[in-house]
Simulated assay, not measured.
Amino acid sequence: MAEREWRVPVAQAAAKWAAAVAVAALAAVSAGDRQFLLLAAAAAIGLAALALRDLLAPVRVAADAAGVTVVAGYAARRRIPWDEVAAVRVDERRRLLLHTRLLEIETSDDLHLFSRFDLGAEVDDVAAALGELRQGSSSGVG
């Protein structure tokens, strides 16, 4: 089976950059109000840091018959062979008006969480594709 990868959508990364620029411009025009300037500058820096991560590590999850590669930390990558993956599942939670769905890739020492905004696809679809790749790796062994 060929390698599959899931990445942050380009439009989403562009929106983060645009928001960072807009907030920075807002900070620049409000230089007279020090508190607002500080808050706007902090927000602009935070948005720019998130957007920079999308440029440095756009592919959040990649997988093939041998294993899965995930983004770990800010922009590092970690390769995990399938035999080290304890579980791949979708975590769904409903609280008040919020409904969150996360892809969980669990190993013996770590839990990697990804939303549809990280993957550019529905988490159920990614979990199914990872399951197929994992099945393909175990059926080809032995």
Rank of each mutant, 00 (worst) to 15 (best):
A2L: 12
A2R: 13
E3Q: 11
R4A: 02
P9E: 07
V10Q: 11
A11V: 12
A13E: 04
A14M: 12
W17L: 13
A18L: 14
A19F: 04
A20C: 11
A20T: 09
V21R: 03
V21H: 02
A22F: 12
A25D: 14
A28N: 07
A28I: 09
A28H: 10
A28V: 13
A28E: 10
S30R: 09
S30D: 14
S30N: 15
A31N: 09
D33F: 13
D33L: 10
R34N: 15
R34I: 13
L37A: 12
L37K: 03
L37N: 08
A40M: 02
A40Y: 03
A41I: 06
A43C: 12
L50S: 14
L50G: 12
A51G: 14
A51N: 10
L52W: 07
L52H: 03
L55P: 11
L55T: 15
L56M: 09
A57C: 07
P58Y: 05
P58N: 04
R60P: 02
A62Q: 00
A63Q: 06
A65E: 15
V68W: 02
T69Q: 04
T69D: 04
T69H: 01
V71L: 00
Y74V: 05
Y74I: 03
A75M: 07
A76K: 06
R78L: 11
I80P: 08
P81D: 10
W82N: 06
W82H: 05
A86L: 15
A86D: 14
R89D: 05
R89K: 07
V90Y: 07
E92W: 08
L96T: 10
H99T: 01
H99L: 05
R101G: 04
L102W: 07
L103F: 08
E104W: 08
E104S: 06
E104P: 00
S108D: 13
S108P: 02
L111S: 14
L113R: 15
L113N: 10
S115V: 05
S115K: 09
S115I: 07
F117R: 15
F117M: 15
F117T: 15
L119W: 04
G120V: 05
V123D: 01
V126P: 06
V126A: 08
A127N: 03
A129V: 06
L133V: 03
Q135F: 07
Q135A: 13
G136T: 10
S138E: 15
S138V: 13
